[in-house]
Amino acid sequence: MVSAILSKEPWLHDPLVHDLPWRDAVYGLAKRDSAKLTFAVLRDDGVVTPNPPVARAVSIVVDALKAAGHKVIDWTPPPHKDVNDIAAQTWLFDGGKDVHTAFALSGEPPVPQVEWVYGKEPSNEQSASTIAAVNVAKRKMQKDYMEYWNSTAELTGTGKPVDAVLAPLAPFPAARKETYRYVGYSMWVNLLDYTSVVVPVTNVDKSIDQAYKDFSARDETDKFTNDAYDPEIFDGAHVSVQLVGRRLQEEKMLAVAEYVDKVLRRK
């Protein structure tokens, strides 16, 4: 589908689309060399703890990759809280005016999660200087994260950085009504302009995925996310993970995701 869309040369109709046709060579190379891939795993972003079934899904993939002969290192990048803080600031550059204007068209009230971020009405818009400073911080974070990714070449044993990062997509297996309070596990991918592909792994099993005992929360959001998990309610829900690649690596990451899916199905 991606190849079909790109064959229509959308960059000739949208100035924000990269002039970048589908690269069969990149996709083919990734498929051919899939047995040589190296991975990193981010089990916890240091902000919100993944629920038990999400943590189990990540471990399932790590174990399968290691069994297939791949090296999997720990991913310890610049603090994701700092990445998230920069991203969150961009949401409110206009004080939420655009969001509230959109809701006003129908008179529909914002759902609680939207109101939680943007308030009941627009707030003050940010100054040009503030916006510029946030963009400077964003570029610095992109550079810092890039250099960290480059540094993993010293740990992979191949002389090259990791090919993909395995991570939760969200700290919970599914979004219960009014409990989707944390988006940090996808926010870092968006801010850094990375490539992410989601791979289904397992289902919640209430006999295995019991709630944590003596859980020590980092903050209120971490506590809320943990408290919202109920193995009885979530039993049978799908659990997926994401595989993250660098910027503009869509072809490579699709091939990597296909390969990881095959590795998981061999079990």
Rank of each mutant, 00 (worst) to 15 (best):
P21F: 05
V47W: 12
A217G: 03
Q242F: 08
L37G: 01
D74F: 00
V61W: 00
K8Y: 14
L12R: 14
R43Q: 10
W188I: 06
A4N: 10
D214Q: 09
A153G: 05
E125I: 07
L6D: 04
M141Y: 11
M146F: 14
V162P: 01
S129I: 13
K31G: 04
L42R: 13
A30W: 00
L6F: 12
T158Q: 01
T38I: 04
P53T: 01
R247I: 08
E154V: 06
T76K: 15
S123I: 08
A174G: 05
E121I: 10
A68F: 01
P10N: 04
L166H: 04
S216E: 15
F93Q: 11
A228P: 00
T179Q: 10
P53G: 08
K262Q: 14
L16W: 09
V263S: 05
P161G: 06
D94L: 06
V189R: 06
T90R: 03
G236H: 06
I131S: 07
K177D: 12
T179G: 03
H18A: 15
Y148A: 10
A170Q: 13
E220F: 11
S186T: 15
D19P: 02
V183C: 08
G245L: 04
K36C: 04
W91A: 05
W11T: 03
D227A: 12
E178M: 11
P200N: 00
A153C: 05
A133E: 11
T202R: 13
V114L: 08
T130E: 14
W188Y: 15
P50K: 10
K252R: 15
N84V: 13
V83P: 02
Y185M: 07
V165C: 04
S7T: 00
A167L: 05
H100G: 05
I60W: 07
G46F: 02
G184S: 07
I73E: 03
Y185A: 07
S207W: 10
A175N: 11
D82G: 06
V134L: 09
T202H: 05
D98E: 11
D235P: 04
D144Q: 12
P171I: 09
K97C: 02
M187S: 13
L243Y: 00
V239G: 04
W149N: 12
K36D: 02
A102F: 10
V197R: 01
L6C: 03
L248I: 07
S34D: 04
D45A: 09
L65C: 01
G96W: 00
P50A: 04
D235F: 01
A170H: 05
I60H: 12
L169C: 11
H80W: 12
L29E: 15
T202M: 01
L20R: 07
L254F: 07
D19T: 06
V199A: 02
H18C: 12
V2G: 14
V183N: 10
F39Q: 11
A55I: 08
F224R: 11
A255M: 02
V2K: 09
V62D: 00
A237Q: 09
V61G: 01
R246N: 07
A167I: 05
A87I: 06
V241C: 03
V111I: 13
D74Q: 08
A255K: 07
P231G: 03
K267M: 07
E258A: 11
V47G: 03
R265L: 09
L264C: 02
K213I: 03
P79I: 12
G157F: 01
D214A: 08
K213S: 11
A211P: 15
